[in-house]
Simulated scan of single mutants.
Amino acid sequence: MLNPFKKTQPAPAPVAAAQVEPLVAVPAGLVSLAKTAGVSLTKAGVPAGLRAAVYLVVDRSLSMADYFDNGSVQHLADQALGLSVNLDDDGTVPLVFFDNRPYPVVDVSLDRYEGVVAAQHQLHGGKRSMGGTYYTAAMNTVIEHYRNSGATDPALVIFQTDGAPQDKDATRLQLAQASTMPIFWAFVGFGPSKVAFLKELDKLRGRLVDNASYFHAGADPRGLPDRQLYDGITGEFGRWLPAARAKGLLP
């Protein structure tokens, strides 16, 4: 029997519609990822209708071999594409592998994403050619690609690695200099332990605006709920947008 004196609780407010519906038609294999990414963008306060180019940078140092073999890197590429379809209407994510050097940019697209990581990895020599860890080469590749694209919308760069680089000082300088550009760097760590250097970059001083975040995906990135990864990537991106606009980096 209902208690007439008990106040009824209002139904929870629905999630805002912004960003939940992808901008382009999505293959069946990516629908769940796209919807989950859309919810995270909304939670992060990313404005409805915002356009942004999504990049994916992947560490190809030797310590990453198991993550290529077990599909973790391919899954991250799928997740990046699921995020991109909410922000960019071309359905494409430029992918940059790096170790001692950056590798040529390849597009991960809605009609060419399955197995693309393994194919590119083998094209570059597979495990036998995996090298060291130099962040700045990959960062420069992204910056050059973004500039040459003629884009006026911001860029969201998912930068994956499992360890600190061999060019720490140059990386600090590069990130500080890049803070004057409309590019946000979302660092994603793989591995059992958090990467102390990425935590340092997240708090780096001397930047025009805080242009980076760090999320640790752990030793089993494939087993991590997609929602957690997307929340980790989009949370600070949502806060960076108004800060970058206030500094004149965005219209």
Rank of each mutant, 00 (worst) to 15 (best):
G29I: 07
G91Q: 00
L23Q: 12
D89I: 04
S193L: 13
N211P: 08
H121E: 12
A17K: 14
Q228Y: 14
S61R: 03
G150V: 08
T8K: 13
A155Y: 07
I233P: 02
Q120E: 02
R172I: 10
S84H: 11
G218V: 02
G38W: 02
V85E: 03
G189F: 04
L2C: 09
K199F: 03
V117A: 10
L249G: 07
T152V: 12
G29K: 08
F215V: 09
K6R: 15
L173M: 12
L201G: 03
P165E: 06
V26E: 08
P221R: 01
M1C: 06
F98H: 01
D167R: 01
L204V: 04
A52D: 11
R222F: 05
A44I: 10
L208R: 03
L2I: 14
H124T: 08
R51N: 14
T36C: 09
G82M: 03
A119Y: 05
D231T: 01
A164S: 13
Y103C: 01
S213Q: 05
D99P: 02
L23C: 10
A164Y: 06
H216Y: 11
A212N: 01
T141N: 02
K194Y: 07
M64Q: 13
R147H: 12
T152D: 13
K194N: 12
P251I: 06
Q9P: 06
P10A: 14
H75T: 15
S149N: 07
A212T: 03
P12W: 10
A37Q: 04
P225W: 06
A119G: 07
T133S: 02
L241P: 00
L56W: 04
A244E: 12
T180D: 14
P22L: 10
A178H: 11
A53Y: 08
L175C: 08
V57C: 11
D167S: 04
S213L: 04
E236R: 15
F184R: 12
K247G: 07
E144V: 11
A17H: 13
D169I: 09
D89N: 09
P242N: 05
V31G: 04
Y55I: 02
Y214N: 02
Q177I: 07
L204P: 02
Y230I: 11
L110E: 09
G126T: 00
